[in-house]
């Protein structure tokens, strides 16, 4: 028996979520993640970009017990189960922060600023947080 979500066929748009803020200091990172999880219910072509301070959202080894806030970084690893597998990190942002792909909690594709610009041009909807 097919599941209900396998039967529906609507128009598929390319949605890109651009994450530009560090986690914890503001609510943007967590809010963006919530919107991404909800968007997964609509079977769209979703991609995530981490650029500027947004690259810090997926830094490995976060432990927020000491500041009394929830560590939501493990949730990025759940995205694969939501069929959200296109995760991009802007090379320039990562390098200026002394980070490498190895520092990321999830597998990501590293794109240069110019490659990212082209990818943005292809999107139907871009939501920046």
């Amino acid at each position: 028996m097919a599941e209900p979500w396998e039967e529906e066929e609507g128009p598929v748009k390319k949605f890109m979520f651009v994450n530009r803020k560090a986690p914890y200091g503001t609510i943007y990172a967590l809010e963006s993640l919530e919107v991404v999880l909800i968007s997964a219910a609509f079977d769209q072509d979703v991609s995530l970009v981490f650029m500027d301070d947004g690259v810090y959202q997926i830094k490995k080894g976060q432990d927020s017990k000491g500041i009394g806030m929830k560590n939501f970084s493990p949730t990025y690893r759940a995205l694969e189960g939501y069929d959200i597998e296109k995760l991009f990190v802007e090379k320039e942002s990562m390098e200026s922060r002394g980070l490498t792909a190895e520092d990321m909690i999830v597998p990501v594709e590293i794109l240069s600023k110019d490659e990212l610009t082209s990818l943005m041009e292809e999107q139907d909807v871009i939501l920046t947080f």
Binding site: A22, P23, Y24, Y56, K59, K60, G61, Q62, D63, S64, G66, I67, M69, N71, S73, D103
Partner: peptide
């Protein structure tokens, strides 16, 4: 604690 929270 702020370093640790951010994975540093």
């Amino acid at each position: 604690p702020d370093l640790k929270a951010r994975g540093m």
